[in-house]
Design a protein around this nucleic acid. Structure first.
Lengths: 237, 237
DNA sequence: GAAATTAATATGTCCGCACATATTCACCGC
DNA sequence: GCGGTGAATATGTGCGGACATATTAATTTC
């Protein structure tokens, strides 16, 4: 039971607490909005808002007539902090820099075509960039960009602005995927990152698409960033 | 300009569109709620709701008196998928299992004390567990649990239920951190995970706390999971 | 008894209003 | 000028009511 009159944020917190502590276990039916509103001493609107947020987060499932129930797997979605390299570096008080090591327009390798879900073998812009923090290697990036998904990309000068930032500005994506793993440094990456060959590198891959008006989603870019040994990504739970 | 009367979801989408397409560039001031409400043909409440969601996502920044402006770096927070091993395994259609390799009550090592921000050298429950997917090594976990933060933990039988799930059920956390990196397999981990010594392992560390009523937050647990080579974490952008 | 219709119900959406709260800005006295 | 004071203002929160919509349950009809 609750004593005070709750705000909608407090109501959400209280509901979440009851789910987390097992008072309302997964699959259980939650009291109706009106009943909760009465218990919490607030209007139905506030309970509705709280429950809608929880539903959006995947904690509960709601159906008209049939009420609200706790999701089978109440999800906790950790939020990864800033995946944009420049911000990552500057947030730590470092000076960001980048070097364009290679630039080429070439047919997409098979692996990349798969990542971007490209049916035909289109020509892609391929870039290799070294990102620096305070002059030290921070990430070695291999990137493929679809000129169809990012108009104007062939004219851009990526020695001045990083591909990451250019794309963010000129070809914003609608959705994408990210994948994180550990890889052994092969010779080239080891040399560039000043790591020992075979050293464990953190690998971060990103693929992004743009959703057309009524067409099929168009791939924009695929990028793989390799971080030197010791690098860690942080997230909040 | 907009023709139809918009719902709050449509309003949010329209505002997001204007930001993404650069009509309202980063740093720009957004019209006031009332003006937008008039343009969208809806009440201020709906515009308020739309803008609040965008503010919660970090797309815009709002201040009382001073209005709403587009964030300098309209943030995209990738959502990591299910970090709970059992669900991770079962979602891929695998059979989950786990083996308790070691259990001991011992004073906290210095490194762990630092992670949990423990001032005194309290005794912690230390566990080493091998998580399995279809019988194959999936993750090798080293975990320290504070009996103070997780009452009853000393009586739990972790051969039957994994520490992860026991904690989720009996000592839910309020907040925590997560850190992801790549490490070379030392001898013990390599043997247990059936990997070559020195092979690149994905390391996932989690620390969780519970927020007391009015007291200081109490640490619950710190866990480090090492995944065999090739393992990748997925996230949506 | 099966199928179609109707009623009941819980959530979804929205409005108009009111008041709280934080911040800015103009004004005032010195 | 300079610091303090108070009004103006945009957002934050909340209520109560209304109607829409989807789904289930009950009822009627064949």
């Amino acid at each position: 039971m609750v004593e005070r009159r709750l705000s909608w944020r407090e109501a959400r917190a209280e509901i979440l607490r009851r789910i987390r502590t097992g008072i309302w276990p997964p699959g259980a039916q939650i009291p109706y909005e009106e009943d909760l509103a009465e218990e919490f001493g607030c209007g139905r609107g506030l309970v509705n808002r709280a429950l809608q947020e929880l539903a959006a987060e995947g904690v509960v499932e709601r159906k008209r007539k049939g009420g609200t129930r706790v999701a089978d797997h109440p999800v906790r979605r950790p939020k990864l902090e800033i995946p944009i390299l420049r911000q990552e570096v500057e947030a730590r008080g470092g000076v960001y820099g980048h070097l364009l090591l290679a630039r080429a327009l070439a047919p997409a390798p098979l692996e990349i075509r798969g990542r971007l879900k490209l049916s035909e073998a289109a020509e892609l812009l391929h870039l290799r960039t070294l990102h620096l923090a305070d002059g030290a290697p921070y990430a070695y990036e291999a990137r493929w960009i679809s000129p169809a998904g990012a108009p104007g990309v062939l004219e851009a000068d990526f020695t001045k602005i990083s591909a990451n930032e250019w794309l963010l500005r000129h070809a914003p994506y609608d959705f994408g995927e990210m994948s994180i793993g550990a890889e052994a440094a092969e010779a080239e990456a080891a040399a560039i990152l000043k790591a020992a060959p075979g050293a464990p590198l953190l690998s971060v891959e990103r693929t992004t698409w743009r959703r057309g008006e009524e067409e099929e989603p168009a791939p924009i870019t695929f990028a793989r960033q390799l971080h030197p040994p010791g690098h860690r990504l942080k997230a909040e739970l």
